Amino acid sequence: MPRTHAMPLRRTALAAGALLAALSLTACDGSTGSGSSDSSAKAKADQPLKLGQPSPETQEVQRYNKTGKFTITPQKVVMGKPADLDELNDKKYKGYTLAWAYVNAKLADGDTPFKGPMIATNVGMQMEGGQQGTRLILLMGGLSSRPADCHDEDTEATWKKGDDHTLCVPFVVPEGRKVAYVLYSKGFSAEPLKWAVE
């Protein structure tokens, strides 16, 4: 994968969680009462959402000593062309292309008004086979190939409760590889939310 100015998502192992769940069920002496219900609920919660579905719970974002609670809704992924990266004039992008993730965020609760939430830093992309896309951060200017409806995140805007904005995040991905999921990181200790790209 080419090195870009990116903020990769933190990943945690599922194996430890699965082992703990198995131990918990064993400790119930084979009972299939509440333990079975809890397992079913967790399994359902771990199922990927579909693009256009809001996050099942609000996600906390902290900045300027305030905490906002946001509903996150990835809407679509727009694939670019390999030539889109040519203007960066860097051979490391050979064999790669761009994928643009459109994500809506709505300030549902928390400390309001809220200034400058940085939502894009938590957005990720996963390809078929599990490989992560790399978020592309352009330090100066933009790309001429950027879709007309693709807007950068305004990190200094002031949001009121109920405000929502759609941001567009570019990722460098392997050419010819299908994007499987848009991700939203929930921090160090939890698996990211997943939205399946069909």
Rank of each mutant, 00 (worst) to 15 (best):
F171Q: 05
D109W: 07
E156C: 03
L23M: 12
D154E: 12
H165F: 13
R10E: 03
P56S: 05
T134C: 06
G35D: 14
L19G: 08
E60N: 11
L139T: 06
F114M: 10
A99I: 03
G130E: 04
I72F: 13
L23A: 10
T121P: 02
R10S: 11
T71D: 01
R177H: 13
I119D: 02
A6R: 00
D38N: 03
L51V: 08
V77Y: 02
G95D: 06
L136W: 03
F171W: 00
D29M: 12
Y102A: 05
Y64A: 10
L19S: 01
Q59D: 06
K186M: 14
T121V: 12
S40Y: 14
G187H: 08
P48Y: 07
T155Y: 08
A21G: 12
K50Q: 15
T97V: 09
K194L: 12
P2Q: 01
V197E: 01
A6K: 03
T58R: 03
P54Q: 10
T134G: 08
S37R: 14
K69L: 13
K76H: 05
Y93T: 06
D164R: 12
S55G: 00
P74W: 09
Q131E: 15
P54S: 12
A190H: 00
G17T: 04
L136A: 06
D29R: 15
D38W: 03
S37T: 14
E87R: 00
H5L: 07
L183G: 04
A101H: 08
R135G: 09
L51C: 09
Y93I: 04
P117R: 08
L25G: 07
A15Q: 15
A21V: 09
E175H: 10
K178R: 13
E156T: 14
D84V: 00
P8R: 05
R11N: 10
A43I: 09
G162W: 07
D111Y: 09
A196L: 01
P2G: 06
Q53H: 07
I137T: 04
Y93W: 09
G95Y: 09
A16H: 01
P82A: 12
M7I: 15
L51T: 08
A22T: 02
Y96I: 02
D164M: 12
R10K: 09
G35A: 15
Q53S: 11
A13S: 15
V103W: 12
P8H: 02
S40M: 14
M118Q: 11
A101W: 04
E175T: 14
N65L: 14
G95A: 00
A190R: 04
Q75M: 15
G176K: 11
T58W: 03
A15K: 14
A108Y: 15
D164T: 15
S145I: 01
S37V: 13
S24Q: 14
L23T: 11
K66L: 12
T166A: 01
P56D: 12
T97D: 00
A45F: 08
T58G: 05
A101L: 04
R146E: 02
L167E: 06
T158G: 04
A18N: 13
A101S: 05
G124S: 08
